[in-house]
Simulated scan of single mutants.
Amino acid sequence: MEALLVSTGVVALAEIGDKTQLLAFILAARFKRPWPIIAGILVATVLNHALAGAVGAWLTSLVSPQVLRWVLGLSFIAMAAWTLVPDKMDDDESESLAARRLGVFGATFVAFFLAEMGDKTQIATVAMAARYSDAILVVMGTTLGMMLANVPAVLIGDKLAHKLPIRLVHGIAALIFAVLGVATLMGAGASLGF
């Protein structure tokens, strides 16, 4: 259960102000059809994070528990630093072309799936799936965290974006990643084999 709760909380906080949340705001403003956008976000996130969770679980079979502990601890600390760097959206003309060809759901799915490749939340999913023994709970948690951050972005749009203290939220997420990193380096989870 810890894997689900930590994964949900960390990703929900890390996602606030992230490029995929900015993408959710843009898609909501452009298409004004929240339900296909939310469905596209959900399907893209489940697929992307399931792949990331599988990679994380696979990593545990490749390296010794001691090496894994150091890799994970340092990865969480790196995620803490990365979380403090604000994301910016790239203008992409292909987004409107994708919407014409694929519809709102398809355009959202493609945009979110690609935006998540190598993103903080995908890397965090890999690290947490390697850290916890239940990759399924991690993927459920990271997906729930993504939805908790992005559904309001789609439903409320720009009104919400200007009221959140983004720097504070990023600071809290960075602190959680840092605590996870230090705890892992100090041996937390030793009973799990690393």
Rank of each mutant, 00 (worst) to 15 (best):
F113N: 02
L155W: 15
L185V: 07
E2F: 13
G103D: 07
A129M: 08
G9Y: 06
L51K: 00
L47E: 02
G56Y: 01
A44Y: 02
D134S: 09
L13W: 10
F25L: 15
G181R: 01
G17T: 00
G118E: 15
L192I: 00
W58V: 03
K120L: 12
N48Y: 01
G141I: 01
E116I: 00
L13R: 07
R100T: 08
D158F: 04
M1A: 03
L59P: 04
R101W: 10
I136V: 15
Q66F: 12
A127D: 13
L164R: 04
S96F: 14
L192N: 02
A12T: 06
T20K: 02
W70F: 02
V179R: 00
R131P: 02
T142S: 14
S191Y: 08
I26H: 11
S191G: 11
P65M: 06
A50N: 02
V43N: 08
L144S: 09
L23R: 03
T143N: 05
A111P: 03
K88D: 13
L160D: 09
V55W: 08
G145C: 04
S133Y: 09
T8D: 10
L51I: 15
A183T: 01
A24E: 11
F109W: 12
L42Q: 01
I156E: 15
I38M: 09
P165V: 13
K120A: 08
V104T: 15
L164M: 13
I41L: 11
M79R: 07
E116F: 07
V85Q: 06
S94M: 08
I136P: 01
L68A: 11
L5K: 10
W58S: 08
A50M: 12
A3V: 10
L168A: 11
L27T: 06
A183L: 13
L74V: 12
L185T: 03
A115E: 05
I38E: 09
D92C: 00
G187F: 05
F25T: 01
K159Q: 12
A81N: 01
I136K: 08
H162C: 04
M1S: 03
V179I: 15
F25I: 13
G193Q: 08
A183P: 00
S7E: 12
W35D: 05
T121L: 06
L160W: 12
M79V: 10
G187Y: 04
P165N: 13
V6N: 05
V179E: 14
R100V: 05
T184V: 01
D134H: 11
I38D: 05
F112K: 00
E15D: 14
V182Y: 04
F105P: 00
A107Q: 08
V67T: 04
V104P: 13
L192G: 02
G118Q: 12
G53N: 12
L168T: 14
A153H: 13
V10R: 10
Q122T: 10
